[in-house]
């Protein structure tokens, strides 16, 4: 059974994956439609949510990238949290 903490982490991770996917798909669309204002609006709105989700994730479960490492932890969190291919811990 998943611990509560792990279930919460998985939920937060899925949210980042969903936002990250939307963002990346919009990025590819904008590459071939650079003048589409509606897509740009959606991109920036999604980017804001994405950055917020990354910062919140880092605070609760450790950093997802090196620029969201939270200062002041005893250990270097980047190498103390699971890597994505680890079963039951990855994201």
């Amino acid at each position: 059974m998943m611990t509560n903490q792990n279930a919460e982490r998985c939920k937060a991770c899925r949210n980042i994956q969903t936002l990250g996917f939307t963002l990346y798909d919009l990025l590819l669309f904008l590459d071939t439609h650079p003048c589409d204002q509606d897509a740009q609006k959606r991109y920036f709105s999604c980017l804001e949510q994405y950055n917020k989700a990354l910062a919140e994730y880092a605070e609760h479960f450790g950093p997802m990238n090196a620029s969201t490492v939270v200062p002041g932890c005893e250990q270097w969190e980047w190498v103390c949290t699971p890597f994505p291919w680890e079963l039951g811990g990855g994201c």
């Binding site: 991770c13 899925r14 980042i16 994956q17 990250g20 996917f21 990346y24 950093p63 997802m64 990238n65 090196a66 620029s67 980047w78 949290t81 890597f83 994505p84 291919w85 079963l87 039951g88 990855g90 994201c91």
Partner: peptide, 15 residues
């Protein structure tokens, strides 16, 4: 490039 510590789509294979 910079690395993000997550998969683009989740993979969890138990068998």
């Amino acid at each position: 490039w910079s690395y993000e510590k997550r998969l683009q789509y989740p993979v969890k294979i138990t068998q």
